[in-house]
Amino acid sequence: MPVQRRRTCAAVATWRRVGLNVPSALALEQLPIAIVGCGGLGVPAAWTLVLAGCRRLTLVDDDCIELSNLHRQVLYPHAAIGLSKAQQLATALQARFGPLDIHCRQLRVTAETVSPALNGCAAVVECTDDAASKFIVNDWLVADRGRTGTMAAAIGRGGQWFTVSRHTSCYRCLFQQPPDPQILATCSVAGVLGPVVGAVGSWAARSLLAALQGQPDAAHGALVRFSPRGLLRTAVVRAADCICADASYRDGPDAPNPPH
């Protein structure tokens, strides 16, 4: 039986250095986590976080539910078509898991809105189908050092996720800038299978939780891809010319933890 290796990774050391205990389920209850994009990936990510014991969520999405979303965004009732995704996800989670501390922000993350939208959050799961948004969140994580985030994407019968913290390479080490939207296939042209997005969104959230709890995780500083061919992990080395290579970010003090 393979046994999970318990390595003391850099994140644990950091938590200890700043005088925090390694977060347990109890600490997860207090940890404010944002989900950017409450669609096919955001729904399973939120579901996973709450099952893991998270109680404080910020849900960011400016979109409304459409009939064609329901095959993969399975926490939304048919009757909620036309209503706000962020609000409806909050309602669905409260109905299933009792009172939770949820803030809804009905907006799209841009370079201007990212800071106020994610203000006070200790960690982020980026779940939109917009490549530019992943770079905006990545840059916020790097600029607001000490935050941890996971970027998720899915299309067709596959998907990928990547977890960024101060101790690893960042999304820009892997992709220098957002791809040209014209050459990027989106779910609206390439299609997407509901259960696959579910697995990818949940995996992304689990990766974030592992990184927050100081456990070794496959996607921490690495791109993990899931497709019918299997799982593919590619470790990403910090690029020397990347924004995250700045010494004050890499080796400097952590940002203060958001107030509990």
């Binding site: 393979p2 046994v3 579901w47 996973t48 099952l51 019968r157 299978l193 259960p195 697995a199």
Partner: peptide, 29 residues
Amino acid sequence: VLGQPATADAAVVLGALAADLVAADVLKL
């Protein structure tokens, strides 16, 4: 396979992958 008994947070991955197995078969993928 996680190396230890799964807790509730593994349910979404497991449930979605199980749905994928059957959906992919019935949809002939």
